[in-house]
């Protein structure tokens, strides 16, 4: 059975697991099972982010696996100056960028494609709204277009848009995750939004033809 990450939920908030600080301290002392627990605690959230970046289940799983390996190998360098999740976002983003650099020609899964899971294909799921069917259809169409536009942004801009608008991270968290000054994050995110606007404008022109 696959696990569905609900919109707006925080998959890391799970009372079953000890605090990250405790697990990290144990893992840094060589307790590999503590790191395995960290993985279990954060893998769903990590996958959600990776999937939103890659829009490809296999590639997202590759990114997440590679990110946890890198995190394990760099754990001794983690000094707790930021939250573990923030650090993990940085590693995930770097893995995503590296994978894309290595595999530039990998085809992108069309947005219209159904999700593929171990259980088979799933219909694309959209959260319920109180809109009328017509409004809902219009919204869905608009969402599809904007998601398609996000998917065509350059990787780094896409990561910023997904972090801020998808993962609901603050400017401060993104700055910490990408090791950038907040001012740089704001200006780059502004450029990403302007790029998105340009892509949407071009797509709208295409639809009119």
């Amino acid at each position: 059975m696959g696990q569905i990450v609900e919109e707006g939920s925080n998959p890391t908030m799970n009372d079953r697991f000890p605090d990250d600080e405790i697990l990290i301290e144990r893992a840094q002392k060589g307790d590999e099972s503590a790191f395995d627990t960290l993985v279990r605690k954060h893998e769903a959230r990590a996958y959600q982010y990776a999937y939103r970046l890659t829009r490809n289940a296999e590639e997202a799983a590759d990114v997440v696996s590679e990110a946890f390996v890198r995190a394990f190998n760099a754990l001794q360098n983690f000094k707790g100056q930021s939250a573990f999740t923030t650090w993990l976002y940085r590693i995930l983003t770097n893995c995503f960028l590296d994978v894309r650099k290595r595999d530039r020609n990998r085809p992108t899964v069309p947005l219209e494609s159904p999700f593929r899971t171990d259980e088979g294909e799933l219909e694309r799921q959209v959260a319920d709204t109180a809109d009328t069917p017509h409004e809902e259809a219009e919204r869905s169409e608009r969402e599809r277009r904007i998601e398609a536009a996000v998917a065509t942004l350059p990787e780094y801009q896409r990561a910023m848009i997904v972090m801020y608008h998808g993962e609901m991270m603050s400017y401060e968290d993104i700055a910490a995750a990408l090791d950038l000054p907040i001012g740089t994050v704001k200006s780059r995110l502004n450029r990403a939004r302007l790029s998105l606007r340009e892509i949407l404008k071009k797509n709208e022109e295409l639809f009119r033809l």
């Binding site: 990450v5 279990r40 893998e43 939103r52 696996s65 946890f68 899971t117 259980e119 799921q125 608008h165």
Partner: peptide
């Protein structure tokens, strides 16, 4: 406004993810 109201896809975490990560580690 579109970005603010955008419901990013619900993400289905594959059942094999944990095993894949464990194998890589």
């Amino acid at each position: 406004e579109d970005l603010g109201t955008l419901k990013f896809d619900r993400v289905v975490v594959p059942a094999s993810l944990s095993e894949k990560i464990a194998n890589r580690l």
